[in-house]
Structure formats: structure tokens, C-alpha cells
């Protein structure tokens, strides 16, 4: 307990501990009971806080300017006059910590503060329900490694996606796959293909030749539920569920192997 007390006194500003440190330690040594010593520890802590933060002393403060200054050797003498004051270092550390904490808090709360300070603003990623499901089902990031055969498949898919307008309009990020988010947008995106505004998509509007059957193309076949070679407004409304039926591996994403005609056998 005495070591802790001496340590607390050692943390006081130099001018204070040099002048009063020895007396304080003597009083502590005279304190008999353990309870009394504990209260002196608390007292030293309060004194430390007062001295550090409420009683700022200018550097080079003259000690003992009153009458009859006793010139006894200082008990806590230090020789590091050239170093910054310890109080300045502690104050600096506290201020830095508080500012950092405020900054982290402000960024976390997404207030206007970071934008004002840095000209930018943190925006948390927006998850659609299916995106979240995909993310949660695959917590670790996986790097997709493609074989040369798959590379060729994706090259063919690039051409196929550009021809079949339904796929071109759905693949908004042009990665030759239909993500969960893209599938969710299908009912809205398919409306834009209805050039003659008759409420349904015929073969030409889907990107095929006039009179060509939709059934050869897995995506169009899935969308055309009644197989009349047209995608009606009703079929468009249920297009999300229809597209999900093509997701053979249940990963929430339609890959070229699931949308290219005959790709499943490659």
C-alpha cells in the first residue's frame, strides 16, 4: 500500500511532490490502521486529480518563494527538465483519447460531423433480404476459381446475355450471372421490354426472332409458365419465383450453367 501511495505522489506535478511529497509520505507512515491508510490513498488520488487538472502551474514555477523557505533536498527530485512536463503528456493523451472516442462515436452514429471534417460520410451497406441471406449463408469470402472450361462458358454467356434481351435487362452488373438482388428486380425490369405496351412480352421483345419458341431458353421457358410463347403480366408478376426454380444449387444466384441452353450437360 505504501508503494502505491509513493507512486501516486510521484504522479503529482514536480513542484508539488518536491515540496510536499516527503511530508505526505511521513504522514502516511504514521497512519496506523489499514483503513486510515486506504483513506489516505483516496485522498492522494483526489489531490492528484486536483493538481493535474485544477491547479495548472506554469513551467519553471518558482518553488518556495514565501518567507523562510526550507532548503532541504527534494525527496522526488528528477533531472529531466528538458523533457515535456508529465502533466502535459497526460493531458495530451487524455485529450487525444477523448477526441478519438468522439470521432468513432460520431462515425458510428453516422452524423454530419465526419462529412464536415473529412468531406465524406460513412454509409453502411444496404442489404436486400436475399443479399443478406446470401451473405449470412456464406460468412467467409470465397474467391471463385474458374477452370479454362468455365472461362469459355462465361464467354459464351456474354454473347448469349447480349442477345436475349430478358437476360441483358436483368443482368444489371453485366457479370453474366443473375444475383439474388437482380432476380428480385425482375418484375420491374421486365416491364421496360414491353415496347408495344400490350402488357406482355412476345418472342421479339424477349430478344428472339419473330415466331421463335421461348421454350428452348431456360430463363424464358421458366418465365413463360403457360408455355404460350409470351410472358404475360401475370407471369411477370411471379417472375421471381419462376427464376428461382432455375437455381439448381440453391445458392441464390443463377450462373451460366443454369441459364444457358444445354449448359447443364457441359
Amino acid at each position: 500500500m505504501r508503494t502505491l501511495y509513493v507512486w501516486l505522489i510521484g504522479l503529482h506535478p514536480r513542484h508539488f511532490r518536491e515540496r510536499f511529497g516527503e511530508d505526505m509520505t511521513e504522514i502516511f507512515d504514521d497512519a496506523g490502521s489499514r483503513g486510515r491508510r486506504a483513506s489516505l490513498l483516496a485522498d492522494a488520488l483526489v489531490s492528484l486529480i486536483r493538481q493535474r487538472w485544477l491547479r495548472p502551474q506554469p513551467r519553471g514555477h518558482a518553488v518556495g518563494h514565501s518567507a523562510g523557505h526550507v532548503t532541504a533536498g527534494p525527496a522526488f527530485h528528477i533531472i529531466d527538465d528538458a523533457l515535456p512536463r508529465r502533466s502535459a503528456l497526460i493531458n495530451g493523451a487524455v485529450v487525444t483519447f477523448v477526441l478519438l472516442a468522439l470521432m468513432v462515436f460520431a462515425i458510428g452514429r453516422n452524423t454530419r460531423f465526419p462529412k464536415t471534417l473529412f468531406g465524406t460520410r460513412y454509409a453502411p451497406p444496404v442489404f436486400l433480404p436475399m443479399d443478406r441471406a446470401v451473405t449470412e449463408s456464406a460468412p467467409t469470402e470465397e474467391v471463385e476459381m474458374r477452370s479454362p472450361g468455365q472461362d469459355r462458358l462465361y464467354a459464351i454467356a456474354g454473347l448469349y446475355f447480349s442477345v436475349i434481351r430478358v437476360l441483358a435487362i436483368l443482368d444489371t452488373d453485366h457479370d453474366r450471372t443473375l444475383s439474388a438482388a437482380e432476380i428480385l428486380k425482375a418484375p420491374t425490369l421486365l416491364v421496360t421490354l414491353d415496347k408495344n405496351h400490350d402488357g406482355k412480352l412476345d418472342a421479339v421483345e424477349c430478344g428472339l426472332s419473330y415466331g421463335e419458341s421461348l421454350s428452348f431458353h431456360p430463363v424464358l421457358n421458366a418465365l413463360d409458365a403457360d408455355h404460350d410463347d409470351e410472358i404475360s403480366a401475370t407471369e411477370r408478376a411471379i417472375s421471381v419465383d419462376a427464376l428461382k426454380t432455375l437455381d439448381k444449387n440453391d445458392d441464390g444466384v443463377l450462373h451460366p450453367t443454369e441459364v444457358l441452353p444445354g449448359a447443364g450437360v457441359i
Binding site: F20, L40, D43, V46, S47
Partner: peptide, 8 residues
């Protein structure tokens, strides 16, 4: 009075 309060 504790010594800390006193000397402060």
C-alpha cells in the same frame, strides 16, 4: 483533512 487535501 487528508495530507493530499491539506498540501493542495
Amino acid at each position: 483533512l487528508g495530507p493530499g487535501t491539506l498540501y493542495d
